[in-house]
Design a binder for these strands. Structure first.
Length: 261
DNA sequence: AGGTATGTTAATTG
DNA sequence: GCAATTAACATACC
């Protein structure tokens, strides 16, 4: 379940179980999730190294092994990090990390859209891939300027990781809902003021979700997220509508989020 | 049985 | 050449 708030909880899990520890071994159970490394090369690069720092940028977790490369963890649609003790390997485990001090972490991923790779550093990786600023740290200015130049539906623009890294389909819908913006509105049409308000909503939504460790049951009942599948609009009680935008499903309240084209 | 799914990205179209 | 859109990836579940 990985968007920025979920991935931040993964970062904390990795930190709790690996920070300061030495990697004793890496076991690749499905090489299909490796990105640009062979199982052998991954093990060679990581084994014997200490985890110095665990960071997150958007939906990506980096484990800094310096001196040495950074481990790059991406979770796709169904990735997760699950602590395990030997013997009890979690379901859908694709890669296992074991630590010299004891314990292990499993990278699980049912659909295998996630990946594990290596990079000289997190900065190098982000630069090469063109990942934009982290959605929780970025100021509004750059986002407003770049989004204003786009005519695509604002929903699609919010999902563009080059503009703002970390926003995914569900939290994008939540931010649009709270800002009262129709998902198919052209980004440019919102104007600087509208984009600024939307950016504030994105940050507020993500920060609140992180504070609640991305547990939906703890989110405010005024939010769209908990009732996204089933319920009526928590504000007006009306029926929620869904649209296909940029290949993803958008859920919104037609009453609260008026069409703006 | 068929449609859908929290993400990326190559390929295609405009 | 760039912005926008769509298909494809692999797998489980309702």
């Amino acid at each position: 379940m990985p968007e920025l708030p979920e991935v931040e909880t993964y970062r904390r899990i990795f930190e709790r179980h690996a920070l300061g520890k030495t990697v004793a071994g890496v076991s690749v159970r499905d090489a299909g999730v490796l990105d640009g490394v062979t199982p052998r090369a991954l093990a060679a690069a990581v084994r014997g190294r200490r985890v110095r720092e665990v960071t997150r940028h958007g939906k990506i977790v980096f484990a800094d092994l310096s001196p040495g490369p950074a481990l790059v963890l991406r979770f796709g649609m169904t990735g997760d990090l699950v602590p395990f003790e030997d013997g009890a390997v979690p379901r859908f485990a694709r890669v296992l990390f074991r630590f010299a001090e004891g314990g292990g972490l499993a990278f699980t991923d049912m659909r295998k859209f996630g990946s594990i790779g290596l990079a000289p550093s997190s900065q190098a990786y982000l630069g090469e891939r063109g990942v934009g600023p982290d959605a929780l740290r970025a100021g509004a200015q750059a986002f407003v300027a770049r989004a204003a130049a786009r005519r695509a539906p604002i929903k699609a623009v919010l999902l563009d990781q080059a503009l703002l890294a970390g926003v995914g389909n569900l939290y994008a819908d939540e931010a649009l809902f709270q800002a009262g913006v129709h998902p198919s509105t052209s980004a440019a049409r919102l104007g600087p003021a509208g984009l600024r308000r939307l950016h504030a909503a994105v940050r507020r939504v993500l920060a609140r979700a992180v504070a609640n460790e991305a547990v939906w049951e703890r989110l405010p009942s005024s939010w769209l997220l908990p009732v996204r599948e089933s319920g009526p609009c928590p504000h007006c009680g009306g029926r929620l509508r869904r649209l296909r935008i940029g290949g993803r499903t958008s859920v919104f309240c037609p009453e609260r989020q008026r069409r703006g084209r």
